[in-house]
Simulated assay, not measured.
Amino acid sequence: MSEVNDKVVIVTGGANGIGAFSVEVFIENQAKHVAILDIDTISGFKLEKHLNTKYGDGKVKFYKCDVSIDDQLFGAFNKVLDSHGYIDVVVNNAAVSLENSLERIRRLVDINVTALVMSTLKAIEIMRVDKTGKGGTIINISSIAALKQFCPSVFVYCGTKSAVLQFSNCIGKQEYFSKTGVRVITVCYGPTDTDLVPLMINIDDSINPEIRSNIDAQKLQTAESAARGLLEAYKNGASGSTWLVFDSKVTEITSNIDRAYDIMSENFTK
């Protein structure tokens, strides 16, 4: 079991929703420090003040950061490293869901996939034991959108979460973990009461009423229960494992993922 105490943690998209609760859950469990990376300065500084008042000065620091801009993302990592000397945990939580224009779709891919990949690679570079690091954990946030072929849906959002799942599973496998000492865990959230839900709007207006109806029919878990599920995955997950947090219940689904890929690849592998 992996413990949280004395860990230095980065949470992207940490100013609101699941990210904000994740920040507090780590602090509650005796993390040394949590850095919040987000573009929302009002919520970010407010959360920093609230948690430092509640748990002690210096426990949390907000960094204004657009994760899709490498200079800002890597700059924030370097500031945390300069302040604390090491980074133990990176939670790649930042995501958007709105895809009602080509511009929005490009940004969705930039944030949900490209930024997550760059953050993961930067974290491995810092933490890998075969270089100058001491190991660590990366938790990449996917979704049930990666586990089922929903239609009609926010297709690009679903595609980005599938990309997160595949990337994280592969880079987290034992063959690579044995070289780096950096765990990579995937957490798939079920329907959760966050600001992303109302913004699940497709560029094709003709299917939005059905998408909205399907979403409205779902029972939403709280953002806090999702964050607590993430902590359970952190404590118990092996590198390359996948965890589902659905209806406030936490289940490891690694064997399901492995079985699905065995089926998909059965025509070209032995």
Rank of each mutant, 00 (worst) to 15 (best):
C188P: 09
S178C: 06
Q166R: 13
V164I: 12
S178K: 14
S213L: 06
A163Q: 09
N169Y: 11
I185Q: 06
R212F: 00
G190I: 11
S178P: 02
S213C: 02
K161V: 08
A217D: 00
T160P: 07
F167P: 13
E210Q: 14
Q218F: 13
S162G: 13
F177L: 10
K161T: 10
S206T: 11
L165K: 02
T194C: 13
L196W: 02
C188S: 15
S213G: 02
S178Y: 09
F167Y: 15
P191C: 01
T160N: 04
A163C: 13
V182C: 07
L196K: 04
F177P: 14
G181S: 09
I185K: 08
L165S: 04
T192F: 05
Q218E: 10
I203E: 13
E210V: 12
N169H: 12
Y189I: 14
Q218R: 07
D193V: 05
I211E: 07
I203W: 09
T186F: 05
I211L: 01
T186V: 13
E175R: 06
N169P: 00
R183Y: 11
T186E: 15
P191S: 09
S162F: 10
F177W: 13
N202L: 04
N208G: 15
T194N: 06
I211T: 10
S162C: 15
V182E: 08
E175I: 13
Y189Q: 14
D216F: 00
S162Q: 10
N208T: 12
Q218P: 10
D193F: 04
C188Q: 10
Q166V: 11
Q218K: 03
P191E: 03
P191I: 05
T194H: 05
S213Q: 03
T160C: 10
Q218H: 08
A217S: 03
V187E: 03
G190F: 02
E175H: 04
A163Y: 08
S162H: 11
G190Y: 06
T180C: 06
I201M: 02
G172Y: 05
N208L: 03
V184I: 06
L199W: 01
N202P: 13
D205Q: 10
S178V: 07
D193W: 02
T194R: 03
Y176S: 11
Q166G: 14
K179V: 11
N202R: 09
T160Q: 04
D195F: 08
T160F: 11
K173Q: 09
D205S: 15
L199R: 09
S162L: 07
I201R: 12
V184K: 04
T180M: 05
L196Q: 12
V182R: 06
T194L: 03
D205W: 08
V182T: 04
K161R: 04
C188E: 06
S168T: 11
I211Y: 02
D195Q: 10
Y189M: 08
K173P: 01
C188V: 05
I185E: 10
F167Q: 01
V182Q: 07
G172L: 01
I201N: 14
I211M: 00
N202S: 08
Q174G: 06
K173E: 13
L165I: 03
E210L: 15
N169V: 09
E175Q: 09
R183V: 12
G190V: 12
N169I: 03
V197K: 01
I207K: 07
G190L: 04
T160M: 07
